[in-house]
Design a protein around this nucleic acid. Structure first.
Lengths: 358, 358
DNA sequence: GATAGTTACGCGAACGTTCGCGTAACGGAG
DNA sequence: CTCCGTTACGCGAACGTTCGCGTAACTATC
């Protein structure tokens, strides 16, 4: 099962076997190479990556700390990251930052500290870490580890900086959606936001405000309703919104799940979409095209974000290993970079010119 | 950074440091223990799990081979598996069986063989493997590796058996949905299926047929439309179905994504749900409760399936390590077990008594 | 047929742990 | 003061690799 076994069977030293099975080729004579290959095949030899890692000091593994993957958006990110990582010869170790919520039958409610997620990966000696866990975006302990211990890239804000961020332009997202509604003639535009403590939410809301101001429309705070992040929350928030301001003619929902709830609520309240009320979402889920009516939404490139994140991470890993060769000569000050991928509006049938049917 | 460093600083041998930092406690005097702990903290010592694994021959890692996690169902499974694994002290290595489809900008189209997914994990010396990749359910090479090389549990059928399967009762799923429609008085019940090569699809269809036969309703093959696995496919298939058989009064869609397409198509064709046509789905996605109308669906316990899968896997891992101690005494014949978790119908507003409004 | 050059392989060390056993140091009893 | 029993720590080996260098054996040159 080990190099020694196949070497014995082929009648060579295990170091020679190592050279042909894993290491550099061409150093070993054709004839013995074949013998070794044959022996390995017969024994079903599988190289031991953990021993290899021990000596090469590199695991060819990257760690991902992610929030709940039930969220399509994060799943998309992770899928892309894994694919890109493997394309480049790395494997992915994933640790989920499960929300503290009791959840499904976990009897032993061990209160896990967020930094332990990262620590777990550090113990495993991953070559680098990617965080895709907005729930950790305010955690300073996690931030410190990411900054000092290992090459890292984050999908969200990291307190204190020092970690490159790859994301999309959230403010622009809110702005695009709102501008679209303004162009359709809407003036009373409500918005359903996610939880305010999340940065994305604040950014998208900023975009919403900016668009209104640019159009000379006063921002009415009663048109902003903070909600959760799912369809039910969208439903409830819409009811609240229409109670507060029955005259809204358009609603900007901060994601498509919320938007589903918005559509549902409008239906119950007897408002037709888009004739009585336009709706625009964010994220552009695949299903959104098949809702009734098909949902206008701002497309956010999560897949590409995942790809970019690992591409950037692998670059950093390489430059880090180069630098350690040079004994950390010229410690890279490395201003924390922010890469923002462009978003764009996908127009479907849930938005229309204001008052078209009245 | 290593045990030797903290040992040096604490003035002890590194083996002693090992005992207090990782291994058994109580063997070392209180005083020196504190010294070592202090030294470790000052140096920011993080144990090296790869070195540990090398000697203990156990990585405390399990591998998951999964299909595209954009599918909520699989994501759910993986989320649960990861959570349960970590609760029990294991970490998760995930490898995705990306469909060969060209997809997003992967320039180097290295044709990866499915078995290489497993091989990757074997090299990493994971303690066990879980497969959640229906796309691999016909791959004999993968099956052989799972059978012989490592403790494994699968979420889907494994050709040749020998690997315990944890899943849910798919035939019953189809049966429950169909029985429900029959009880509401429907006789002309169409069904939109997924791709026939998938086992789930065949099983659910079997349940559909069984329910019809049990009710003495002849099975009309023209009412069975094979489709893909997403909303668009559901839309198209519904159009086909209604062309073939305009008299259907109920449709059973094999998953909720398809059902979204079904609802959308019925809307376009001017049929009201549920008055003109009832619709029932499968999987019970969270959004399904907020569609219009809220979708009746068969709930499938993916989360629990994930939990059970790793629970079973960890059991097997333990018994395997015990057995290797006993030199594989009494090779366990271990009939390949199938654990089927129960499903249940969730009744919402997309189904109604036939012809209630006509 | 001795010497230099090349090619093909082996050797030793190191990576950071764990684990069992050996052995100092110490205290109390004879 | 010697002897035995504990307690607290150290030692050596092993896990399966990689890597650089040493060194046989073999071919070519004079």
């Amino acid at each position: 099962m080990s190099l020694k076994d196949v070497a014995a069977r082929a009648g060579v030293s295990f170091q020679t076997a190592s050279k042909v099975l894993n290491g550099q080729k061409g150093v070993v004579a054709e004839r013995t190479q074949e013998r070794i290959l044959a022996a390995a095949a017969e024994l079903g030899y599988v190289p031991n990556a953990v021993a290899r890692s021990l000596v090469t000091k590199s695991t060819y593994a990257i760690g991902i700390v992610a929030d709940d993957l039930s969220d399509w958006v994060l799943a998309q990110f992770v899928v892309a990251a894994e694919r890109e990582a493997r394309r480049r010869g790395h494997v992915v170790l994933i640790v989920m930052a499960h929300s503290s919520a009791a959840g499904h039958g976990s009897s032993t409610t061990t209160k896990e500290k967020p930094e332990s997620y990262v620590r777990l990966l550090l113990e495993r000696r991953v070559d680098g870490i990617i965080t895709a866990a907005p729930s950790l975006e305010h955690d300073r302990a996690v931030a410190r580890l990411l900054r000092n211990r290992v090459p890292a890239v984050s999908m969200h804000h990291v307190p204190g900086g020092g970690v490159p961020v790859v994301g999309s332009d959230h403010a622009r997202t809110g702005q695009l959606a709102t501008e679209h509604l303004i162009q359709l003639g809407h003036r009373r535009i409500g918005t359903i936001t996610g939880p305010m403590r999340r940065r994305v939410v604040a950014s998208r809301l900023r975009g919403y405000r900016a668009a209104l101001e640019a159009a000379g429309i006063p921002v009415d705070e009663s048109l902003v309703v903070e909600a959760g992040w799912d369809a039910q929350a969208g439903y409830d928030a819409t009811c609240t919104l229409l109670e507060r301001a029955p005259d809204v003619t358009a609603i900007f929902a901060q994601n498509d799940l919320l938007a589903i709830g918005v559509l549902s609520a409008l239906d119950h309240l007897g408002r037709r979409v888009p004739q009585d009320c336009s709706v625009v979402g964010c994220d552009d889920l695949p299903q959104s095209a098949h809702l009734r009516p098909p949902l206008t939404s701002v497309h956010v490139p999560f897949y590409e974000t995942g790809e970019r994140a690992v591409a950037l991470l692998l670059e950093r890993i390489q430059s880090a290993s180069r630098n350690s060769l040079q004994e950390n000569l010229a410690e890279p000050p490395q201003r924390s970079v922010r890469t923002l991928l462009p978003v764009h509006l996908v127009e479907r049938q849930s938005t229309a010119v204001r008052g078209e049917s009245t």
